[in-house]
């Protein structure tokens, strides 16, 4: 038997080149996020050159105002997808929550209370999804699909026609436009409380994901749920939290959207779960779980929003092609992620 070698492990003595390669490799998972950012800038540039009036305060303001709800949804989906799950119920939650909210508000409820109820509707549905997934081993997409049906169906029982908020309702305050910079003509930098809420949500999500044990457990679950539980982490509690958070954020998105539009309908939010998934994925969140960035999801949501603006401006692209383009972009990013992963495995 050979004697024990007493020198310390030789592992860290890698060459500088090797270390650089490792660092590049370790950043490879953020490549899709970078790609999304580049695409966003290219889209802006293309829009400016082709149609003009893109690089201006009003366009940017509108981009945020019109997509605040999508940003909030995408943040929720980012949590879910990082953990390796999926939530298809968010669009239906918006429908149920906003129809419910408008009806309650018009029945004379206090605006604050209505908002609370709207958010809690989302939390409840998220909780049910979480329980089904965690305790009854239902696949996430089936459980949340069922919740999507349930939400959409309940919303339809309440009303099948658009319901309008009273002009005087306090909820509408969240949609008020506040001028921050008074530009020439209508070119103002405008913000709404809804946008502020979205930004707050992004900040809070960032802190939770990066600075709390719960957040880190979300990543660990996405890396390997089995390992996470063998490491003794609170897997059960965290998974419930993830779905409750996603539902709650959908409730908040419903508040923001209703405040902006001033009305609600049972068909509101059809397909938004897919937009939110696309936003998260475009922003660099790995659909198989384990990697993802809240800020990436914001970029992803803005890319989708800008795409709609450009298609409207262009006019020659039939609006019906939008879903093909969304689907195509989603596919490209999923394939890009696969390529990056298989490169890393080598």
């Amino acid at each position: 038997m050979s004697a024990a070698i007493t020198t310390p492990p030789a592992a860290p003595t890698v060459s500088r080149l090797e270390r650089l390669r490792q660092q590049l490799l370790s950043r490879a998972d953020s490549l899709p996020t970078a790609a999304a950012l580049v695409i966003f800038v290219l889209m802006l540039a293309y829009g400016e050159i082709a149609y003009g009036r893109i690089f201006q305060l009003s366009t940017v303001s509108n981009l945020f105002i019109n997509n605040a709800h999508l940003i909030i949804l995408a943040v929720g989906l980012t949590f879910v997808i990082i953990s390796g799950g999926i939530d298809l119920s968010v669009g239906a939650i918006i429908a149920l929550s906003s129809v419910c909210g408008v009806i309650l508000a018009n029945a004379g409820w206090n605006a604050g209370l209505v908002i609370l109820v709207m958010i809690l509707i989302g939390s409840t549905i998220g909780l049910v999804s979480g329980v089904l997934i965690q305790y009854f081993d239902v696949q996430p997409f089936i459980a949340t699909l069922a919740m999507m049906f349930l939400g959409r169906g309940l919303a339809s029982m309440l009303s099948t026609v658009p319901v309008r908020l009273d002009e005087a309702s306090g909820i509408l305050l969240l949609g008020t436009k506040i001028k921050l910079i008074d530009g020439p003509k209508v070119n103002d930098l405008v913000i709404t409380p809804g946008v502020l809420i979205a930004l707050l949500v992004v900040a809070a999500a960032f802190i939770i994901l990066h600075r709390t044990r719960t957040g880190r457990t979300v990543y660990a679950i996405g890396g390997s749920e089995h390992s996470a539980s063998l490491m003794g982490l609170a897997v059960v509690r965290t998974k419930l939290f993830i779905y409750v958070a996603s539902g709650t954020l959908a409730g908040i998105a419903a508040v923001v959207y209703t405040a902006r539009l001033g009305s609600a309908q049972n068909i509101t939010g059809i397909g938004w779960e897919l937009d939110a998934i696309a936003a998260a994925v475009i922003g660099g969140t790995l659909l198989t779980g384990g990697f993802g960035y809240v800020l990436g999801a914001v970029v992803g949501a803005l890319v989708l929003g800008l795409m709609n603006v450009l298609i409207t401006r262009d006019g020659s692209i039939p609006p019906e092609a939008t879903t093909i383009i969304t689907g195509g972009i989603l596919l490209i990013f999923v394939l890009l992620q696969r390529a990056v992963i298989s490169r890393q495995r080598e």
């Binding site: 044990r213 457990t217 660990a220 996405g222 490491m231």
Partner: peptide, 21 residues
């Protein structure tokens, strides 16, 4: 365990400290 039960998607330090940060 034989099949190292860590999470390859997060940093080395985090894998060591996860749950004890």
């Amino acid at each position: 365990y034989q099949e190292v039960n860590l999470c390859t998607n997060i940093s080395i330090g985090e894998n060591v400290m996860l749950g004890h940060e």
